[in-house]
């Protein structure tokens, strides 16, 4: 049952809806440290070392925001988890200590000669979240930098430098009623210091956090393997807790993504979650199911869930 604790279950209604479901967060925190910290950081660093071109991209324009984010996240780690992290800043001299990993980073704020990596790349190796900088330019939002190890079937290399709207144009129905324009306007109006959170879900047919488009041929084929019998083991509900934060100093937007996985066998232990998950999968419009990659095995998945709901009813 421990896997259920703290899992950000995303469904609030018994029917699939697509909306700008962002809520303001108070206190305004951009990141979360969980029990998986060490394991995930090990994986993040391994991916960055082996596939740096795939996991980190930046445009020169993003450098000031990168510095601001580095300070922000080191500060937040230390102030929210003082037993695990320490951060001191005296003038420009900074010292960050990561007691969980027994490491420290000493650097001078805004002096690139004092760090070996770009600031976003460096701070990204101390948090579980993927980090994206959306530059707020006078003609819209643009993806100007990112450290992305755990994407859900997209490619950072492809979307770098792209407009917010174009990045999302593959999401079915997103152009309806100017929806994407509204979301962009909403983001461009977020006030300095405010954090907005939304949960986005999908399904992965393995327990892998790193499912980039670049390795689709490796993990995508498992979608064919789902049966009514093995669904509980193979299928994982994947939830991205996404937070948007307006950087006070540089006026760009920091987008953090914390990815959580829950195996279906664990999920069905909670009756209300089982029911809600079932209803949402069942009412999912076909084009969304296709987009989320669920179409191939939706029948098997629904049958698996129905069997368990039936068992639950008989058990009572």
């Amino acid at each position: 049952m421990s896997r259920l604790n703290g899992f950000p279950f995303p469904f609030t209604k018994d029917q699939y809806t697509y909306s700008n479901n962002s809520v303001p967060l108070d206190p305004a925190k951009t990141i979360t440290v969980t029990a998986d910290y060490k394991n995930e950081l090990e994986l993040i660093r391994k991916l960055l070392q082996k596939h740096h071109q795939r996991c980190f991209r930046s445009l020169p324009l993003s450098i000031e925001s990168q510095w601001e984010i580095m300070l922000l996240l080191f500060n937040e780690l230390a102030s929210c988890n003082p037993e695990s992290f320490t951060f001191q800043k005296m003038g420009g001299e900074c010292l960050f200590q990561n007691h969980l990993l027994a490491e420290e980073e000493a650097f001078v704020f805004r002096d690139v000669s004092t760090i070996d990596l770009e600031p976003l790349d460096l701070v990204g190796r101390h948090v579980q979240e993927d980090l994206i900088i959306m530059g707020d330019r006078h003609d819209g939002l643009f993806l100007e930098a990112g450290q992305l190890c755990f994407p859900s079937n997209w490619s950072l290399a492809f979307v770098q430098g792209m407009e917010f709207k174009s990045i999302h144009n593959q999401v079915p129905g997103i152009q309806n009623d100017g929806f994407i324009d509204k979301v962009e306007r909403f983001i461009s109006k977020i006030q300095p210091g405010a954090v907005w959170e939304r949960k986005n879900w999908s399904i992965t047919v393995t327990n892998k956090l790193d499912t980039p488009l670049e390795t689709y041929s490796v993990w995508g084929k498992h979608r064919q393997e789902v049966t009514c019998e093995n669904a509980g083991d193979l299928i994982h509900l994947r939830v991205e807790v996404q937070r948007l934060f307006r950087l006070p100093m540089n006026h760009d937007v920091l987008f953090t993504i914390h990815t959580y996985l829950l195996q279906l066998n664990d999920l069905i232990q909670q009756e209300s979650w089982l029911k809600s998950f079932y209803q949402n999968i069942k009412t999912l419009p076909e084009e969304i199911a296709e987009y989320k990659g669920i179409s191939t095995y939706r029948t098997e998945l629904l049958r698996f869930l129905e069997n368990h709901m039936e068992k639950g009813r008989r058990g009572r």
Partner: peptide
């Protein structure tokens, strides 16, 4: 050598269309 299906997902930054893998 990957078998790719071109899409209409266009990047002005790369001036290119995204090719999705065909399994």
């Amino acid at each position: 050598g990957q078998h790719l299906e071109p899409s209409d997902h266009y990047s002005s930054f790369h001036d290119a269309y995204l090719g999705y893998p065909i399994l």
